[in-house]
Simulated scan of single mutants.
Amino acid sequence: MANKRDLKKDINYVLGDIIEEVYVWELDNPKKDNKKGEAIIDEAIKSFDELIERVNDRSIENPSKHFKAIRKDLEKTAQTLVDKVNAL
């Protein structure tokens, strides 16, 4: 199922880019406290695990609706994390 594969890739790329951006911020600001950045990374990893678990759920009745809801949650989570990275 291409839709499931594409969704998994999107989750990986989006959250991976956010984690990478935190690492770049930490390299650019070595004297600042990294605890906030580490918390963002932990939240991104937790979100990744939760979203992938939902994608792999086989007990769904309407796959199209289910995957659309996951994409919407990914967008919302990504926007929240990006806002936190921008606030560092």
Rank of each mutant, 00 (worst) to 15 (best):
Y13A: 07
E43L: 10
N56Y: 06
E50A: 11
D17L: 04
A87H: 10
N3V: 15
K46Y: 06
V14L: 04
R54H: 02
N56F: 03
I70G: 01
E38Y: 08
I19S: 06
N34P: 07
D73P: 01
V22I: 12
I41L: 07
K65C: 00
Y23K: 10
P30A: 11
R5L: 13
P63L: 07
I41G: 05
W25K: 05
S64L: 14
E75Y: 14
E61L: 14
K32R: 15
E21D: 15
L15A: 05
D17Y: 04
D42Y: 06
A78V: 01
I40K: 02
K68H: 06
V55K: 00
L7W: 02
L15Q: 03
A69G: 03
K76I: 12
V22E: 03
D57S: 09
T80N: 14
N29Q: 09
D10R: 10
K68N: 08
Y13F: 07
N3M: 13
L81Q: 04
S59C: 05
A44M: 04
K46S: 13
I70Q: 01
R58A: 07
N12P: 00
D83L: 08
F67R: 08
K65H: 05
T80K: 14
S59N: 15
K76M: 08
P63S: 08
N34E: 13
D49M: 08
E26F: 10
S64V: 14
D28L: 15
I18A: 01
S59M: 10
P30M: 12
Y23L: 09
L81R: 04
L74K: 01
A2T: 12
E53F: 00
E75S: 14
E43K: 15
T80D: 13
F67D: 05
D28Y: 09
K8P: 00
D28A: 14
L7Y: 04
D33A: 07
E26T: 11
E20G: 12
Q79R: 10
N62R: 14
Q79Y: 07
K8A: 06
A2S: 09
I41A: 05
K76P: 01
L74V: 06
S47F: 02
E38L: 11
K35F: 11
L27S: 15
E75Q: 11
